[in-house]
Nucleic acid binder design. Sequence first.
DNA 1: TTTTAAGTTAAACGTATGTTTCAAACAGAC
DNA 2: GTCTGTTTGAAACATACGTTTAACTTAAAA
Lengths: 210, 210
Amino acid sequence: MAQSDTVTKILDAAEALFAEHGFAETSLRTITAKADVNLAAVNYHFGSKKALIQAVFERFLTPFSQLIETGLDQHAKLQPDTPMEVEEILQQVARAIAGVSHGDRRRLSIFMRLAGLAYTQGQGHLRRFLQKEYRGIFRRLMAVITMATPDLQPVERFWRFHFMLGATAFTMSSMESLQAIVEHDFDTKCTEEEIVALLLPFLAAGIRAK
Amino acid sequence: MAQSDTVTKILDAAEALFAEHGFAETSLRTITAKADVNLAAVNYHFGSKKALIQAVFERFLTPFSQLIETGLDQHAKLQPDTPMEVEEILQQVARAIAGVSHGDRRRLSIFMRLAGLAYTQGQGHLRRFLQKEYRGIFRRLMAVITMATPDLQPVERFWRFHFMLGATAFTMSSMESLQAIVEHDFDTKCTEEEIVALLLPFLAAGIRAK
DNA sequence: TTTTAAGTTAAACGTATGTTTCAAACAGAC
DNA sequence: GTCTGTTTGAAACATACGTTTAACTTAAAA
């Protein structure tokens, strides 16, 4: 229980701090202080800060992509001949995200912000790691989207897919500050689920434009 | 000519390096080395690294917002009673961006990547600086968008505006790598202008969804 | 020519970072 | 209870950073 406890505490603290301040701005000392763990524990259990960053991603990205995978499998089994609608695909992804955060409201936000950071923050090693590790699920998602948008030119679809990715990653990565602005300017609170509910029609309309 | 030359060299180097690696990851030593300038020059001319970051933004954000301002002024003068269409507004912005980069292809990409970083990368001081300095143009843009989308709820419009911002900032900030992928996978080259031409209908459709 | 201010330079400063070390504490197996 | 491999702990290490200093150069003003 000793090891896995320390490892988990480090991952939890790192996850939250990375999401809040970014990777370069979060020091190992801050992480280990928050985790109530010795400084050396990070290098002992993970080897390096880079490896810790990758481990943080691995912990939620692996179940996440598995959830999507099984979701797509289910559709393929139940309705093997009808291609999925764009909205269905997006909802599948949204459901997987919600599934990973598993009740914990904060984790959904952390999850999204991390995903955004992964793209926007430099960290070449992270990009390489993610591309290598999760290329399969990425290609599969692309395949169902291709079936859902048969009229689109391949290059056009590629770009629109990344437009969607960008709107999502950016929104999620600056979610907290945007939520604060909404609360201040409109006197309304927006939960993460509500934001997702607003985002999906935007994305679906965008990818089907014209 | 000594001062302004050094200042310009520092700004040029910082702009390119920030866009490529982010703010925290770019050291003053890297900047001054690339600018072929003494390390102390940054603190002498700008006062601090934070002030340098703000100066980099100021240099292109000020003419950028002026271009948008005059564009909106023109429309207000020529057609004072017809509200702008979403597409017109977006094209106005696109034209302003192109105007600032002024021939230099790389600056367009740098410009957008910086804008994206400003939002996603922590840097509280940058956010505060931008909000204080450019709140006027932001509000004015929001106002014309409001007139162009009268059916939208205010909160909904706020979020959709940031979805657009996200799609744009993200796309531009990872433009180079995405262009490389397109060239490899589809055997086609995409210029920045072509990407913008693909982006605008996506954004317009998104903000008008439903 | 002398003075004066601005700009540049090389070196150093203090601090914070990621990483390593090695002794101490702990666990389960025998 | 002893032994063995694993995990923790406090301290130190080397390095990189932003910033400061003070001597030096430049060039225009007096």
